[in-house]
């Protein structure tokens, strides 16, 4: 049973994502320079990937289960501002600020989850509503409490421990966030692929009604996923505030599109029911490489967006074509 089979390996959901990743790597090594793979260059895209990846995985899991969460775009600045206002403006201990940021994530996630489960409104619309609502709250409270839309959080206010845990650079250029990302990815891999939780997830994305009839606690699972994505977004915002010593109202919106792109490049179907954590992980790296690789090439920077768009499309196309080939492949009968 356990004999190694090449075709089995290729049929895993993440193998297409590996191909997309290899494609963009080769592209930027050819058109850019190998600097891009050396530590300073690698930090450039790993840092971007880590911040995006922490949010992209729960967003991807929601997509596998057939839901969408775009309120993360507002939760990132809201998380940053919460810690900025509590610890920067009012000078309370950083742990209170961190707890406040993550607590806000739990509350918004619960609101998203409960609304989606208890109303017939699609999650896109529910989270669009909370996206604007949270954005408005962040702006309103920021100006009301601090008189500005950009709240400073000095290293002294963060304190050495929080700065070391959430906002330092390791080995010259690697954000500590990268290690959080790896840790979270490992935990997600375990829960999604090696525990019943994962089977429930895929069953729910495939057919929600049948899943519920089969005894899977679909409501609880959906709410948990929304809480995870909101808390993850607040976590990223909190880390950015501690790292950059500032929290801003006008940040984070690009994370909505960027996380969905990463998830799709990573092989998750927009319709749900198919995908993997490792695939999302690789998709995020692919996106980050495409986004940052441009700075290692000699292309005129005015073409950046065009190249990013074309590369991502190619990566998804390769992934899709490959998945169809892999899934329709049938071994020769002996």
């Amino acid at each position: 049973m356990n004999t190694f089979s090449f075709s089995d390996l290729l049929r895993r959901p993440e193998s297409g994502a590996v191909l997309g990743l290899l494609f963009v790597l080769v592209f930027f090594v050819i058109f850019g320079s190998v600097e891009f793979l050396k530590p300073a260059g690698a930090a450039s895209w790993l840092n971007v990937a880590a911040n995006l990846g922490i949010v992209a995985i729960p967003v991807g899991l929601l997509m596998i289960s057939g839901e969408l969460d775009i309120s993360i775009g507002a939760m990132i600045p809201a998380g940053a501002l919460t810690v900025g206002i509590i610890s920067g403006q009012f000078g309370l201990p950083i742990w209170v600020g961190i707890a406040g940021a993550l607590g806000l994530g739990v509350i918004v996630g619960l609101i998203n989850g409960l609304l989606v489960v208890n109303t017939a409104v699609p999650s896109l619309i529910v989270t669009l509503g909370t996206l604007f609502a949270v954005q408005g709250l962040a702006l309103g409270f920021s100006v009301l409490l601090t008189g500005t839309t950009s709240v400073a959080l000095s290293p002294a206010e963060s304190g050495a421990i929080a700065k070391a845990l959430f906002g330092q650079f390791i080995g010259g250029g690697f954000q500590v966030t990268i290690f959080w990302w790896l840790l979270f990815t490992a935990v997600y891999v375990f829960y999604v692929h090696y525990s019943p939780f994962g089977n429930w997830l895929f069953a729910m994305g495939g057919d929600r009604v049948s899943a519920r009839n089969a005894g899977i606690p679909t409501d609880k699972l959906t709410i948990t996923l929304f809480v995870l994505s909101s808390v993850s977004a607040a976590f990223v915002g909190m880390c950015q505030a501690i790292l950059f010593n500032v929290a801003q109202v006008s940040a984070g919106m690009t994370f909505i599109f960027n996380s969905i792109i990463s998830v799709v490049v990573g092989g998750v179907l927009l319709t749900g029911g198919f995908g993997s954590v490792i695939g999302i992980f690789l998709g995020t790296i692919t996106f980050a490489i495409v986004n940052q690789g441009i700075y290692f090439t000699s292309f005129d920077r005015n073409w950046s967006s065009l190249i990013i768009g074309a590369m991502l499309l190619l990566a998804v196309l390769m992934n899709n074509t490959f998945r169809i080939m892999a899934l329709t492949y049938s071994p020769k009968k002996k």
């Binding site: 840092n47 971007v48 790292l243 940040a251 994370f255 599109f257 986004n291 441009i294 005015n302 950046s304």
Partner: peptide, 15 residues
């Protein structure tokens, strides 16, 4: 000029 995918992402702008 930075691409629109970097706007509001402090890490992407810094990198």
């Amino acid at each position: 000029p930075l691409p629109a995918t970097s706007f509001g992402d402090a890490t992407a702008v810094a990198e």
